[in-house]
């Protein structure tokens, strides 16, 4: 508990990422995460996050700060921020969603899942494979069979792009 820092009577928390970087945030910002909230309630002010890497943590702290200051007047601003926040690569989205899940930030979790779903919605199976870095483990016969079984899902044009 030596690392506890008190500034301007605001309780501060230290978050430590998986890359051993430390971030100082206000307690009111941090408690939006259920995981951090539980630790704070148990009296911790130093929070190691072995599953969250610095890159994702920086973005998530940004998000938490923005959403901690939510008022009626900056509603539009937050919406724009959220839009920019999810406007990133799939790999970043996956990293963020894992972190959000670990930290139990449900609003962020919903937003990220919605974004991922929206973006793969109209993709062809081939594009989805590339996005998720998955190999097709079906034989051509199996693939034909499944395609036939799900025939109505293969009408119209699909998005082949990877972003």
């Amino acid at each position: 508990m030596a690392s506890t820092t008190e500034t301007k009577q605001k309780k501060m928390l230290i978050l430590k990422s998986a890359d051993n970087d430390e971030f100082e945030i206000e307690e009111s910002v941090g408690v939006q995460s259920e995981t951090i909230k539980n630790l704070v309630e148990d009296g911790f002010t130093f929070v190691p996050l072995p599953n969250v890497y610095t890159k994702a943590l920086i973005k998530i702290i940004d998000y938490l700060k923005k959403h901690a200051n939510k008022t009626d007047s900056n509603d539009e601003e937050i919406k724009t921020f959220d839009k920019d926040f999810v406007n990133t690569t799939f790999d970043d989205l996956f990293e963020l969603v894992s972190a959000a899940n670990y930290l139990h930030i449900s609003c962020l979790m919903n937003m990220l899942c919605q974004t991922i779903a929206d973006r793969i919605k109209d993709k062809s199976p081939e594009a989805v494979r590339k996005i998720f870095h998955i190999n097709c483990d079906y034989t051509p016969e199996e693939e034909a069979k499944i395609r036939k079984a799900n025939a109505q899902a293969f009408e119209g044009q699909f998005d082949e792009s990877l972003d």
């Binding site: 779903a117 793969i120 919605k121 109209d122 993709k123 062809s124 199976p125 989805v128 494979r129 998720f132 998955i134 190999n135 097709c136 483990d137 079906y138 693939e143 499944i146 395609r147 799900n150 109505q152 899902a153 293969f154 009408e155 699909f158």
Partner: peptide, 10 residues
């Protein structure tokens, strides 16, 4: 339809 297509991938 998206879920059906998704099941195509692997």
């Amino acid at each position: 339809p998206s879920l059906c297509r998704l099941s195509m991938t692997n």
